[in-house]
Design a protein around this nucleic acid. Structure first.
Length: 524
RNA sequence: GCCCUCGUAGUUCAAAGGAUAGAACAACGGCCUUCUAAGCCGUGGAUCUAGGUUCGAUUCCUAGCGAGGGUACCA
């Protein structure tokens, strides 16, 4: 149980004792200034209207009730009221000192929780079409999905990371034409020239496209993902093999047709999506007999929820799939899995060059590949850059600027804090020890360390993975300041309390960096 | 036209409806005989516009302006 949870429990008890009714979740936040304590609740302001009283008076009553609770004293040394009605909590020094030892005891496990209760969750991300190398646009969701998976895992979920290979359908034909370099060529670039030489061109277009797709997947995409981005997918899911050849698409479309969820019009088969709140119905079988993307989505959803029994599936998509969201959600609903699918849209990246926008296009050959970027700035920097963005923000990306800034990237700031902590612990091994009390800065560090499990909870709730990088930076920040201000080893003497704090610090920072899959160097 | 996302320091990004809107880079001024200065301290600098809801709005609502995306029997 996190500190936030404990404070929530204390408040619930107090509200009950006062006979106050409140059904919502009690919000606990980190105050903006140190004088307001370590945790704060706005509950008095929320309830003031319902109780027809003033927030300050109500806060005072709740405070009185809190103070009678013996449990409170284990955690908190002081509760105060502040305008316009905040209730502020101050963690006690004893509690903090106890918790530092807990961090050291748990080590890499600190922060892990069991709230996921072993539920099976699947995260599908990247899933770029195997028609060209991975651009930074395609790969935007890569680091995101990878870290989100780690967060879920830390909270006790069973996570499967999956890449859907779109190896059937029209874009494969188009790829075939492109490799043949005939009139219908669309994709261009060196990799197409290469494939043109490597593949036997005396086959039909679809076969050429499929061979090309396989080569692109193996030689470009997997290489970038596994070796450059350091992402390990648990499942590479072939649409062609798993959904087309097995007949799963046909089966599921037949099934919903039996249920009356489709109808025929103008030679095509339509899914009644409008019935479920969509703006229009959507085609699942085209008049030429081919299945649409949505038909595949039906089969894929059934495969995920029905066949493989995932409790929850997260789809990390690019913003260009926006139009498919209602179709998929309604498909999930019709199949009986409503509420178990969640779609995260990643907004587009605009490529900037000398202050000008460049349209990123595989067809025009104007793009930056993820592989290129990582070669230029290194894995840790590339990963950190992408993880700092919120999924909903439109990124303006300038490669030259990224290169120029890579040496000043915040990732080094964070890693340097780790190096410093490490050096001290290394050096202090053989020092004689002299015990004194804890410094305020040390307790401040402990307070931040204890937020780690709360950050994990928050990320699962908000899906804002960028909060983890922000947390890493604030961890580094607090430590650098402390390091500058105090000498830990002085005249070959060291205070063991300080070493305890720094050990705990190193553990948490390592846990954070591991979760982000950023290296934690011992020396820089 | 309609739908979605976004609009915050010079720049790139943060901020579950909360308290004095945070960082980083850039600019300017300081700090290395002592645990690595890849660091620290200090200064200046921002919520697109107009209304509304609220004790309280960068956040929610309405309208406008601007950027990106969607609006296919493409994927």
């Amino acid at each position: 149980m996190t500190i936030k949870n404990e404070i929530q429990q204390l408040l619930i008890k107090s509200l009950q004792a006062l006979g106050l009714e409140y059904s919502g979740e009690i919000e606990i936040s980190y105050p903006t200034a140190k004088k307001f304590g370590d945790y704060a609740s706005n509950i008095a302001m929320v309830l003031a209207k319902q109780e027809k009283t003033e927030p300050m008076k109500l806060a005072e009553k709740i405070k009185e009730a809190l103070l009678t609770d013996q449990e409170l004293k284990k955690l908190v040394s002081e509760v105060s009221i502040a305008q316009p009605g905040f209730i502020n909590f101050y963690l006690s020094d004893q509690y903090l000192q106890k918790q530092v030892k807990e961090i050291i005891k748990q080590g890499p496990k600190f922060g892990q929780q069991k709230s996921g209760q072993g539920k099976k969750i699947q995260i599908e991300f990247v899933s770029a079409n195997p028609t060209g190398p991975l651009t930074i646009g395609n790969a935007r969701g890569g680091f995101y999905g990878d870290v989100l998976a780690n967060v879920y895992q830390a909270l006790g979920y069973q996570v499967v990371k999956e890449y859907l290979i779109n190896d059937s359908g029209n874009q494969i034909k188009t790829l075939g034409h492109s490799i043949l370099k005939d009139d219908e060529q669309q994709y261009k670039g060196k990799y197409i020239d290469q494939l043109n030489k490597e593949i036997d061109l005396k086959q039909d277009v679809f076969a050429i496209g499929q061979q090309g797709a396989k080569k692109i997947l193996d030689e470009y995409i997997k290489d970038t993902i596994e070796n450059k981005m350091k992402i390990k997918f648990d499942v590479w899911f072939s649409e062609h093999k798993e959904l087309c050849q097995t007949g799963e698409i046909k089966k599921i479309i037949d099934k919903i047709t039996e249920q009356g969820e489709t109808y025929e019009d103008e030679g095509a088969v339509w899914f009644r999506s409008e019935k479920y709140g969509d703006t229009r119905d959507r085609v699942v079988i085209k008049s030429d007999g081919d299945y649409t993307y949505l038909a595949t989505d039906f089969a894929y959803a059934e495969n995920k929820f029905g066949k493989r029994k995932f409790d929850k599936c997260i789809y990390v998509w690019g913003a260009d799939h926006l139009g498919d969201v209602p179709g998929l959600l309604n498909a999930i609903k019709v199949l009986g899995y409503e509420g178990r699918g969640e779609i995260i849209l990643q907004q587009f990246i605009t490529l900037m060059k000398d202050g000008q926008e460049v349209k990123m296009s595989k067809r025009a050959g104007t793009y930056i590949t993820m592989s290129e970027l990582i070669d230029q700035v290194g894995h840790d920097v590339a990963r950190f850059i992408f993880l700092m963005y919120s999924p909903s923000s439109h990124i303006n990306f300038d490669l030259d600027l990224a290169k120029e800034k890579s040496e000043k990237n915040p990732v080094y700031y964070v890693q340097y804090a780790y190096v410093r902590a490490n050096n001290i612990l290394d050096k202090a091994k053989n020092m004689s020890q002299e015990k004194t009390g804890y410094l305020e800065n040390e307790l401040a560090i402990v307070k931040i360390l204890l937020q780690w499990p709360e950050i994990l909870d928050e990320v699962v709730a908000s899906k804002q993975v960028n909060h983890v990088t922000a947390y890493a930076i604030s961890l580094a920040d607090e430590f650098h300041r402390y390091y500058q201000q105090y000498r830990i080893i002085d005249n070959d003497l060291v205070n063991p309390n300080r070493l305890v704090v720094i050990s705990a610090y190193r553990i948490i920072l390592k846990n954070v960096l591991d979760l982000l899959k950023i290296s934690s160097p011992e020396k820089m």
